[in-house]
């Protein structure tokens, strides 16, 4: 399983996962607060967790760099480089999420909705920018649009699961979770099908793919079976599945023959 061992991009897998988790949670807590302004302990906890998640992602992403102390230079080419744009938008998201998490932590209601909305929009922009990084013709397995579907699916699924935890009426939340699940499943299945074009594809790779798709589907299933207490379990399954899928995304790029 050389390809999976060679997947040295774990900092990027954690970074993209943390970014999408933070964005999904920011959207869910902002929407939940708009519909039911009464304070709840869970919403306060989730809202406060947005900034630590982004900060964790940014900190871990430094491990990807050969020279982390020069990371500030990544903002030097904003007009042309997609990577510069991603760093800029993620930094803006981090600053906004710091304000949002502070408001949630201190249970301050003033400005909470506009700051929550700005944080969510910046989060969506950062997720889109991070997906755009992988639209490169030299890596056809990434350059098909499914990476954007996967990143969007993760964000939507996390937002839906957070809403399912926050809202008593869970039907709309389940619908959102199912939408995210469908995006993740389709993108994962497409990636899997592409792997067959590049032999050898070892059995462990197929097992990993099967496990990933199973975990992704398990979230909505748990939520449907146990609408009241299923959300935490569904969250665990979804986050584990998304992380497994992200590691696969980097691993399969090694399978593809390159010049």
């Amino acid at each position: 399983m050389t390809e999976l061992r060679q997947a040295k991009e774990w900092p990027l897998a954690i970074f993209t996962l943390a970014l999408q988790l933070a964005c999904g949670v920011a959207i869910a807590t902002t929407v939940a607060a708009a519909y039911s302004p009464a304070q709840s302990v869970l919403r306060r906890t989730l809202g406060s967790a947005v900034f630590p998640l982004v900060a964790l992602g940014l900190a871990v992403s430094l491990a990807h760099l050969g020279r982390p102390l020069s990371a500030w230079r990544a903002l030097s080419n904003i007009g042309n480089s997609r990577l510069s744009l991603e760093v800029l938008l993620t930094s803006a998201f981090a600053v906004s999420s710091l304000a949002y998490s502070f408001l949630e932590w201190t249970s301050t209601t003033a400005l909470r909705f506009p700051i929550g909305a700005i944080t969510s929009i910046l989060g969506i922009a950062a997720v889109i920018a991070s997906a755009a990084i992988y639209r490169i013709p030299t890596r056809p397995i990434w350059d098909s649009g499914w990476v954007i579907a996967s990143f969007a699916g993760s964000t939507v699924m996390v937002a839906g699961l957070a809403l399912a935890s926050l809202w008593t009426p869970t039907r709309p939340a389940i619908f959102i979770v199912l939408s995210g699940c469908a995006l993740l499943f389709l993108s994962g299945a497409r990636m899997w099908s592409r792997c067959f074009q590049f032999p050898p594809h070892p059995n462990l790779l197929h097992m990993w793919f099967a496990g990933y798709l199973l975990l992704v589907v398990l979230g909505p299933v748990l939520l449907t079976i146990m609408p009241v207490n299923g959300a935490p379990l569904a969250c665990c399954a979804a986050v584990t599945g998304i992380f497994a899928g992200r590691m696969l995304m980097f691993a399969v790029a090694e399978l593809e023959p390159r010049f």
Partner: peptide, 14 residues
């Protein structure tokens, strides 16, 4: 100036 992000190794076709 290089920060070791390796993005150039991804985007260069050669």
């Amino acid at each position: 100036r290089c920060i070791g992000c390796r993005y150039c190794t991804w985007v260069c076709p050669y």
